[in-house]
């Protein structure tokens, strides 16, 4: 037999052609639906509603993250300002101490 790819593909199409489901198949499936485990999940949330909720949660989380970042940034800036004020105060105190020490030394 001289077998070509075309022969094989045609044979595959014939071999793998759809075959009819057994007689009464649908009735047997419907009969099994009475089984409590086969009841549909009638959720009030449709797939699109779930997607919208997920998007809203993501948006809220992103907004929350941004706000938290802004608060942290603000606190860091305040801390830096306080540190500079303390350093300035220390410099002033130190200068005054040196003046006082010199005055004491002169006396």
């Amino acid at each position: 037999m001289n077998i070509t790819d075309k022969n094989i593909e045609e044979a595959l199409q014939r071999t793998l052609a759809r075959t009819s489901a057994p007689e009464g198949f649908a009735d047997r499936v419907l009969a099994r639906i009475g089984d409590p485990q086969s009841q549909p999940q009638r959720s009030w949330l449709s797939a699109s509603a779930l997607r919208r909720i997920a998007a809203a949660i993501l948006f809220t989380a992103a907004l929350g993250g941004l706000t938290a970042h802004q608060i942290a940034e603000h606190r860091r800036a305040e801390g830096e300002l306080a540190r500079r004020e303390v350093m300035t105060a220390l410099h002033i105190a130190s200068a005054k101490m040196r003046v006082a020490q010199r005055a004491v030394a002169r006396d």
Partner: peptide
Amino acid sequence: AEEIAQEVFLQLYRTLGEIE
């Protein structure tokens, strides 16, 4: 094959709400 096919349709029945 019929058993598998039946189970597939039963699974479909349980999850029909997800089919768009």
